[in-house]
Write a protein that binds this DNA or RNA. Structure first.
Lengths: 229, 229
DNA sequence: CCAAAAGTGTTCACGGTACACCCATGC
DNA sequence: GCATGGGTGTACCGTGAACACTTTTGG
């Protein structure tokens, strides 16, 4: 690149990964505690600057692994945050990503710029660094909208799950109740769930059948269009 | 900003405005012919580099005015395009915006980096510069999805319009037919259209009533959620 | 036996779809 | 009077909402 182009139009670009996880019947956000200024010690959404030669998606994946130890997650562009004064160091443009992780094997390993990494229930999220509260709000809105349009909720559940778990996930995230019978009919009618031969164990009531997500029929469903509720 | 931050993480950032217009029963895209390399003489989506101290939205508005003379339009973030080799000059990250303009008073004034500015029907769009074909495809998909979710189509029509015009707009963009009676019922049932006392003139059939868009009820509709078809 | 959640069936109301029909205007 | 598109009414069907009921398991 000629120096002129970079000098005249350069902007520092960072990525921020808003990570949602679902565990113990609760939707949780992954936050890190900042090791360095600005906002040293304050909780924030994991992220960092884009390096030369990597795409934003790659940068987001890398930062997530570095700061929290999380790998292999669903990761999708959310929105750009570009208020000119959003970073006290100067003009920094941030591309926010929305990430969804399965609860199984969630071993958080804080490192790099992060002192700690921890999951927070929405109601207990502390004051955040930068404009990260805005990112969280935007991401939550997007998650709720997406849940109704595509089987994105499955990214938050283990490989095998019961319909009860899935229903509770919908109820918790959308903050509304569903009729058991109607929920089953609707979800199974979509044809994206594959029943297995396995059942729940050690529960104080009739054991529920476990289902898995059927990728093939998911694709054909998306090709057409899909609408839950 | 400390030099170190800018030097190490700076990326050239541009905005591109994908502008759709609807006229004579056709959906059209606004393109400009590039005055300078790279891709000199090639048609492209209007856009340019972000200047210091302006937001992306401001930059998009400015570039659109400079290159085409268009002002006051609906303008919304579409998506970031960040392939590392998308610009032969080096790493340039582009934030694409989706713009919708009303056909009335469309005076195109090419200037700045643009030799010409012109409207193209989708089928006649030539080969485009950079990855602009991808931006166009993404924007079209977004426009179609949005049309079903919110009364965005009204941004493409003049202030007063007939239900027939609106229906044709939906049919052209979504490439499917709607039953006249059902379309009227559905749209009017939403309550976002205000009937006026005016009618079409000089048509070889019964004159159609003109409607306007009611912003107030639109807001309450969005607050809840809305679904056309 | 009881509590608790899985799982099934039935009824009802609403909204989308299809289609038939009348109205107004220019040529 | 005929073609053209505006505008209205109705009958049917599928889907979602509400709810009653049975099944299985642990305590």
């Amino acid at each position: 690149m000629k120096p002129s182009l970079r000098d005249r139009h350069a902007v520092a670009v960072s990525v921020d990964c808003l990570v949602f996880g679902y565990d113990e019947g609760q939707l949780r956000v992954l936050l890190i505690q900042r090791r360095r200024p600005p906002f040293e010690g304050r909780w924030a959404i994991p992220g960092g600057f884009v390096e030369d030669g990597e795409t934003l998606h790659q940068a987001a994946t890398r930062e997530l692994a570095e700061e929290t130890g999380i790998r292999k997650v669903f990761l999708e562009e959310l929105q750009v945050f570009d208020a000119v004064d959003r970073d006290p160091r100067g003009r920094v443009l941030s591309v926010a990503f929305l990430a969804l992780v399965k609860p199984s094997g969630l071993k958080l390993v804080a490192a790099s710029d992060a002192v700690r990494a921890a999951w927070f229930v929405l109601e207990e999220v502390p004051e955040l660094a930068f404009d990260h509260r805005g990112i969280l709000d935007a991401g939550l809105q997007r998650l709720r909208a997406d849940l109704l349009r595509r089987p994105i909720g499955l990214e938050l559940l283990p490989r095998k799950f019961t319909l009860g778990q899935l229903q509770r996930l919908y109820e918790v995230i959308l903050n509304r109740a569903f009729d058991v019978s109607n929920f089953r009919k609707k979800i199974l009618g979509l044809g994206v769930l594959q029943p297995t031969q396995d059942y729940e164990t050690d529960v104080a009531h009739r054991a529920a059948r476990l289902y898995t997500f059927d990728l093939a029929s998911y694709r054909s469903l998306m090709a057409n269009g899909f609408r839950a509720f």
